[in-house]
Structure formats: C-alpha cells, structure tokens
C-alpha cells in the first residue's frame, strides 16, 4: 500500500496550484519579474483582473468561479489569492474543514480533490474550477462509516483536528479498497495530520475498524 503524503507536490496534470507556488510567483512579481508558470495560467483561466503598476503585475480584484462541492455546483466570487479552505469556510459556509496551521503542516483542512486528499489551506480556490471537491460533511455517518468509527472509539476530544483525520482516513480507504491495513499502515497514512488533545490511540482504532467495515462491505 503506498503511503499517502498530502505534503507531496502536485503531480503533473493534477489540479491544485498550490499557494506555495503562487506565493513564490507573487514574490517574483513584487521584484518586478513577470509572474510565470502554473499560477499565472490559473489566474488567466479564472479571469482575474490584472492591474499593471510600474511594470509590476499585481493580481487583485475578484473572480467569479464555479466550484463543485459535495456534488453541488456552487457559484462564488473569490480573489486570486483566496485559498480553497477560506473559500469553503468564509464564502460557502462549508465549515467542516478547519483552519489550524494555515501552512500545510497539520492537516485539519484536508479535503478530497478528485479523489485525493489535499491540504485546502494551501490550495488556491481558482485552481479548483472544473474539479470535484469533497468535504467530510458529505460522508456517510451510519454504522461502518468513518465518522461512526471515530465516534465509537472516541477518536476525538475537542474535535478540531477530527475533520482532517476523518477525511484523510476516508481518502486512504477509498484509494485502498478492500485492504486490511496494519497499525503501521494507519500511522503512515495519517502522518500528515496533527492532534493536540492526543486522541491518536482512538483515531488508530477508528481507522482500523472503518477499514474492516469497508472490507466487509458495510459502507
């Protein structure tokens, strides 16, 4: 089973111009060099207003975009710099994913983008048009589901990291259907997430139980 690393850079052809790419681009722009590469093309795709000031391209203003979130087409106006996370939380009232580190360290913002777990705090909203965003609000919650396993095993305390763990777990199970992971597989699969209350023991058991339930066809 391949380890899942949400920190890995986007593979060629994968959606998601990361904010890191974009910030790198912005820094260059500020230095008077044209914004280049994927971030620039994303801006144009999104139809962002471009203001030229003394030869420096400043991308600002608003762009109306269409996002598909949890199967629903949503129209929203964002800025080119708006992250997917802030767009979901602040503009679309999809508040399941949480903002914690805001820098791709902790995983609380994890969403599933075209089947892959990504950190939405470092994914630009404008790069997600035409792609499918799923958040944990769309997951099944009955017996055999990932949220149910977290609940039953007390894999949460304050619960603020929980959306990220649940989503990472769900994405992992979808990518590895029918497998029965070991504890080490689970630890590796969830290593992109941080919990401060220290609920890891319950989280591990929840992930193992959910995998078992999935294998037995209960979700």
């Amino acid at each position: 089973m391949p380890p899942q690393d949400p920190k890995a850079p986007a593979a060629p052809g994968r959606p998601g111009h990361s904010r890191r790419d974009f910030l790198r681009g912005s820094g260059l722009a500020a230095a008077g060099v044209a914004l280049a590469g994927s971030a620039e093309s994303a801006l144009h795709e999104a139809g962002a207003d471009v203001v030229q000031t003394e030869g420096v391209a400043i991308y600002s203003g608003s762009c109306p975009i269409e996002l598909k979130v949890n199967g629903e087409a949503m129209s929203v106006t964002v800025e080119p710099r708006s992250t997917l996370l802030d767009t979901l939380r602040n503009r679309l009232d999809v508040t399941g994913p949480k903002r914690v580190c805001d820098r791709a360290s902790c995983g609380a913002c994890t969403v599933i983008l075209d089947g892959e777990a990504v950190y939405s705090c470092t994914t630009l909203a404008i790069s997600c048009t035409g792609h499918e965003v799923r958040t944990l609000e769309s997951f099944e919650t009955g017996e055999g589901s990932v949220p149910h396993a977290f609940h039953q095993n007390d894999g949460l305390m304050c619960g603020y990291c929980t959306p990220g763990f649940v989503t990472a777990c769900q994405a992992w199970l979808e990518r590895n259907p029918g497998q029965e992971p070991t504890l080490d597989d689970i630890k590796q699969g969830l290593d992109g997430n941080i919990c401060r209350c220290g609920t890891y023991i319950g989280v591990f058991q929840a992930a193992l139980d959910a995998a078992k339930a999935m294998k037995n066809g209960r979700s």
Partner: peptide
Amino acid sequence: RLDGLAKASG
C-alpha cells in the same frame, strides 16, 4: 460522547 458524531462529521 453525545457530540462525537457531530464533531466527526463536520
């Protein structure tokens, strides 16, 4: 916990 499923489902 009573609020566990609400927390685990966002």
